[in-house]
Amino acid sequence: MGRAVNQLSDKWIKKTDIPPGLYGDGNGLYLQVSNRNTKAWIFRFMIRGRARKMGLGDIDQVSLKDARKLAQAKRLLVVDGVDPIEDRKTRKAALVVEREATRAKATTFRQCAEAYIKAHQSGWKSAKHASQWAATLEAYAYPVIGSLPVALVDRSHVMKILEPIWTTKTETASRVRGRVEKILDRARAVFRHGIRTPFSG
């Protein structure tokens, strides 16, 4: 004889006088009522000999119907030997990385440059050095690539910056190239390693 399922009802779970405790609906789904009369869905399961429980949301956010669907989906994971709690953590972590990567790649060259200067200026020999960085980028790099997403900046953009000044202001051009390359190198490192705050150090 199988276990009873769908033991709870919408009308019953909305009652205000339910004593604190766990109330089973079937298939591992429980309504948890706290001492303060808050109500939340819990999925209880066994995996690799270990009893675990997983929150599925408050009843104000997740209906009984949806809670049953969630519990069934988590139950199928358990059947396949997958811990639903660890699976959710992995999915959340992957989503965070994806969002941060998207945000980082949308960051403009100017934003990256300003963040780079801010992060490194304390280690530079003088405030004048930091102001020189800002001034050269403002004069030569920003008009060409300042508003461009840093992920799209390539060699052709750098050449476009340098060509007008390479023969007339060779030393300045060399400095600009070095500074642009340092910013781009740092940007590539950020994207490659998934650092969450670009140019944080």
Rank of each mutant, 00 (worst) to 15 (best):
S63F: 06
K15T: 08
A134L: 15
I59K: 08
E86W: 03
K125G: 01
E181G: 02
L77C: 05
G123V: 06
I85Q: 12
G81L: 12
R192I: 02
K11H: 04
H157A: 02
E98K: 12
T38L: 07
T172Y: 08
V82Y: 11
E114S: 00
G28R: 03
R50N: 11
K125Q: 09
K39I: 04
V5H: 07
Y23V: 04
S131G: 06
E163Y: 07
Q7T: 11
R36K: 14
R186I: 02
A67K: 07
W133Y: 07
F109E: 01
S126M: 08
T136W: 03
A73S: 15
D10S: 09
L137S: 01
A127T: 04
V158H: 08
I18S: 04
L76T: 10
V180N: 05
N6P: 00
T172E: 06
D58C: 09
E86G: 05
R188W: 07
K69Y: 11
S126Q: 08
R175P: 03
D17T: 14
G201P: 06
I13A: 06
R36C: 08
S63M: 02
R177N: 14
A94P: 12
R179V: 06
K169A: 12
L8E: 06
V62I: 15
P84I: 05
E100Q: 15
D80G: 09
D25K: 03
G57Y: 09
Q61R: 13
K39S: 06
D10V: 07
T167N: 11
Y116I: 00
V96T: 15
C112E: 00
V153S: 03
E138I: 07
V97Q: 13
R175L: 11
W133S: 08
R175T: 08
Q7W: 05
